[in-house]
C-alpha cells in the first residue's frame, strides 16, 4: 500500500466561499478512487489544487516521485505534471484546430521530453508516432486520427481529452467527470478502458463522477465531498450504506 499522492489539510477559499475545506487524503497505488459529491462540492477545485493550477490558501500536497513522497505545494503546473500527475478537464480543453493525431502527438512529445526538438520532422518520427497510434487504438480514435478536433462530436472530443491525460504516462491520472455528456455506450467504453489500464499498467486513477453506475463499476474506494469537506471515505459498500452521504445528496435519491 504505497501512497502516491497525499494532501494535508488542504484548503482553498474564494472570497467568502470555502471551496475546499481541510481535505486530508492519501491516494494509494493500484486503487481506483472515485471522488463524488453534489455540484459545487469542490471536486474540480480539489484537482486544481493538486495539479498546481490553483494555489491553496493553506495545506500541503505531496507526490511520490523518484521513490519518495515529495512536497509539491506551490510548484508550477507543468512541473507537477512532469513529476507524474496527469489530469483531464471537466470542461473540455483540447487543441481544437489541430487534428486528433496532433493532439496526442503533443502529449507524447512531452512524455519523451522532446519538446525542444526543432529539427525532426514530427510526422516521420517512428518512436513518437508508435506511441500515438497505441493511445489512439486504446481510446478508439484511430479512425478519426486525421480529423480536426473542432469537427468532432462532443463524445469524441471527450475521448481526445482523456487520451491527452493518458498519453503522458504518469503515475497518477486524475479524470474529471470523464463520462459527462456521453451516451451510455460511450461511457461504457470509458469504463472499460479505465479498468483495462488499471489492470494492465502501473497507472493509478482518481475519478470524479456523477454517474453512480460508472462509480460502482470502477471504484475500489469512494470519497464523498460535500461543501469542500470529506464526509465519507471507504470501499463502495461502506459508502453506499452511509447515511450522511444520502443526506448530502438531498432528497436522498439513494445511490
Amino acid at each position: 500500500m504505497t501512497t502516491l499522492l497525499r494532501t494535508v489539510d488542504l484548503r482553498r477559499e474564494f472570497g467568502e466561499l470555502v471551496a475546499v475545506d481541510g481535505v486530508s487524503l492519501d491516494i494509494v497505488h493500484g486503487e481506483i478512487t472515485c471522488i463524488i459529491g453534489p455540484n459545487g462540492a469542490g471536486k474540480t477545485t480539489f484537482y486544481d489544487l493538486l495539479t498546481g493550477m490553483v494555489e491553496p490558501t493553506s495545506g500541503e500536497v505531496w507526490l511520490r516521485h523518484d521513490g519518495e513522497l515529495q512536497e509539491i505545494t506551490g510548484l508550477p503546473a507543468h512541473e507537477i505534471a512532469d513529476r507524474g500527475l496527469a489530469r483531464s478537464f471537466q470542461i473540455i480543453e483540447i487543441f481544437e484546430r489541430l487534428t486528433v493525431r496532433q493532439n496526442v502527438q503533443v502529449a507524447c512529445v512531452a512524455r519523451n521530453d522532446r519538446t525542444l526538438d526543432l529539427t525532426t520532422w514530427l510526422d516521420a518520427d517512428e518512436a513518437i508516432n508508435e506511441q500515438v497510434d497505441e493511445i489512439l487504438e486504446l481510446t478508439g480514435l484511430t479512425h478519426l486520427a486525421e480529423k480536426r478536433c473542432s469537427t468532432l462530436s462532443y463524445g469524441q472530443q471527450r475521448n481526445v481529452e482523456i487520451s491527452l491525460a493518458l498519453a503522458i504516462e504518469s503515475s497518477v491520472v486524475l479524470l474529471d467527470e470523464p463520462t459527462a455528456g456521453l451516451n451510455p455506450t460511450d461511457s461504457a467504453i470509458v469504463v472499460d478502458f479505465v479498468n483495462e489500464l488499471d489492470e494492465r499498467t502501473d497507472t493509478t486513477f482518481v475519478v470524479t463522477e456523477h454517474d453512480m453506475d460508472v462509480v460502482f463499476n470502477i471504484a475500489d474506494r469512494i470519497v464523498v465531498l460535500h461543501d469542500g469537506r470529506v464526509i465519507a471515505d471507504g470501499d463502495p459498500g461502506t459508502v453506499r450504506a452511509d447515511e450522511t452521504v444520502t443526506e448530502a445528496y438531498l432528497g436522498g435519491s439513494s445511490i
Binding site: 508550477p76 503546473a77 496527469a86 512531452a110 526543432l118 525532426t120 503522458i168
Partner: peptide
C-alpha cells in the same frame, strides 16, 4: 522545418490552450 518539428507542434498547441499544454508537463 521548425513548425513541423515536435517543438513547432507543441507551440501550435500552446496557441490553442496554454493551460492544457502545461498540464501535459510542458513549461
Amino acid at each position: 522545418r521548425v513548425i513541423n518539428s515536435p517543438f513547432g507542434t507543441v507551440c501550435r498547441a500552446i496557441r490553442e490552450s496554454p493551460d492544457r499544454v502545461s498540464a501535459l508537463g510542458v513549461n
